[in-house]
């Protein structure tokens, strides 16, 4: 009993020994996590080679605040992205949306791989067939 009292006392004591505990930048860690995830897929329009998460441009700071506010209003991630796209265009999305003009972009890699592997298969078979023909001709000659 005594010991547990002592433990409780110690626990109360410890935070006072340390001078201070750093606070996360945002107040709500959940909001911050969502902001982080969202803003690292969005492009800053001022420093166009940085994500909204990394940029220190004033507009990026404004937009991060705006996203916090939108999260607080209860918008979904998709709604927030739509909100930004309506203002700045698809350019803000580092992950391009799937639509008619970007279809080739998204299926291209798969097509390339399939065409490559299929092409190699076909070339190898034909090549072996031709080499066999050549050998037979040589035998006949």
């Amino acid at each position: 009993m005594k010991r547990s009292v002592l433990l409780v006392a110690l626990c109360l004591w410890v935070p006072m020994l340390v001078q201070g505990v750093a606070r996360p930048l945002g107040d709500d860690p959940e909001v911050e996590a969502r902001l982080k995830a969202l803003s690292s897929e969005l492009r800053c329009l001022v420093c166009q080679n940085q994500t909204l998460a990394d940029s220190s441009a004033a507009l990026a700071e404004d937009l991060r605040q705006e996203i916090r506010a939108l999260i607080a209003q209860g918008l979904s991630d998709q709604e927030i992205i739509d909100y930004l796209v309506a203002r700045y265009g698809d350019f803000v999305r580092y992950r391009p949306p799937l639509k008619a003009t970007t279809l080739l972009l998204w299926i291209g890699p798969g097509l390339l791989l399939a065409a490559g592997v299929g092409g190699l298969w076909w070339v190898l078979r034909r090549r072996n067939a031709r080499l066999s023909d050549d050998e037979e001709k040589r035998k006949e000659a």
């Binding site: 897929e41 492009r43 994500t51 265009g89 698809d90 350019f91 803000v92 999305r93 580092y94 992950r95 391009p96 003009t101 970007t102 080739l104 972009l105 291209g108 890699p109 390339l112 791989l113 490559g116």
Partner: peptide
């Protein structure tokens, strides 16, 4: 195919813009 993929992603915004089909970004998530 991997080279083609990188090239596609890198040049796709340029293709779309040349064809006047809009302006997009292709970034790390892609």
């Amino acid at each position: 195919a991997a080279t083609g993929t990188v090239m596609l992603g890198t040049l796709y915004p340029l293709f779309l813009e040349a064809l006047e089909l809009g302006k997009i970004s292709v970034g790390p998530p892609y």
